[in-house]
Computed example of a mutant assay.
Amino acid sequence: MLDALKVLTTVVVGVMVGVEFSVAFVINRILDALPDDSGQLGRAHGGRMLGAVMPFWYIGSLVLAAVWAVAGWHGHGAGLVVIAAALLILSVIMSILLLVPINNRGRTWTPENRPEDWKEQMNRWDRYHYVRVAVIVAAFALLAAALV
């Protein structure tokens, strides 16, 4: 049962990392290259869509890692799992304090109602997101290392 938990946790966190990496380095670059207001509209739609899913994914990943840390406390790699869980906690805190407020504003914007500094706000979100991606990549790497 513990082995299944380890694999499930690693897969769930790994897929989350893949989605967030793609948003940071592929999707947002594509959206930014679109003409006229298409990029801003795409970011707003992405903010609504992913904003509805990601809280469950982040919290679920954290819960799975915490359960793994507790269940495998005396096993091989327990320290790595604890550090990974701590990094996932950091990613949730970063999300709540830094990224979600910007996303909550940006997902309601249209070309008619967006603020003058909307590009600056999106660039700030991108910078915070790069850091969050680095944090969850590190967590994923630690979980993968704990498997072997």
Rank of each mutant, 00 (worst) to 15 (best):
V135P: 05
S95I: 03
W118Q: 01
A138E: 05
D36I: 09
D117E: 11
V53H: 07
M122E: 14
V63R: 00
A71C: 02
P101N: 05
G14D: 05
D32L: 05
A138Y: 13
V53Q: 07
G18V: 06
P101T: 01
L41W: 06
V13L: 05
G60A: 10
F56A: 12
V17T: 02
V70M: 06
N123Y: 15
G60F: 07
H129L: 01
R105F: 04
L50M: 12
V63Q: 00
N28R: 12
V100D: 02
R43Q: 08
V135G: 02
A146P: 01
N113T: 09
H74W: 15
E20I: 11
H129T: 02
H74Y: 13
A138C: 11
F140A: 12
A144K: 07
G72P: 05
V131F: 11
K119Q: 08
R29L: 08
M122F: 14
Y128T: 13
V26E: 06
L87Y: 04
R127G: 11
L5G: 04
A66W: 02
V82I: 15
M54K: 02
L2M: 11
V133Q: 08
L87I: 04
L64S: 06
A4C: 02
H45R: 10
A134V: 13
L88E: 07
M122I: 15
L90Q: 10
G39A: 08
I96A: 11
I83A: 12
W73C: 09
P115K: 03
G77C: 10
H74Q: 14
G51N: 03
F25I: 00
I83N: 09
L2K: 12
A65V: 01
T10S: 15
A4N: 14
L34I: 04
G75L: 06
Q40M: 06
A144C: 14
L98P: 05
I59H: 01
R29S: 06
I27E: 09
I93V: 15
A85R: 01
V15D: 06
R127N: 15
P35Y: 12
Y130P: 13
V148F: 10
R132P: 04
L62M: 08
L87K: 03
A138P: 07
L99D: 08
A86D: 01
N104A: 13
A141W: 09
L2E: 12
P115Y: 07
R29H: 11
T10I: 10
V92S: 04
L143P: 13
A33Q: 11
D126T: 08
L2S: 07
R132S: 04
P101Q: 03
D37Y: 07
K6E: 13
G106F: 03
L99G: 01
L99F: 07
M49S: 15
V92M: 07
L88D: 01
L88P: 11
R48T: 03
M94L: 13
L143K: 01
L147H: 10
P101Y: 07
M49P: 02
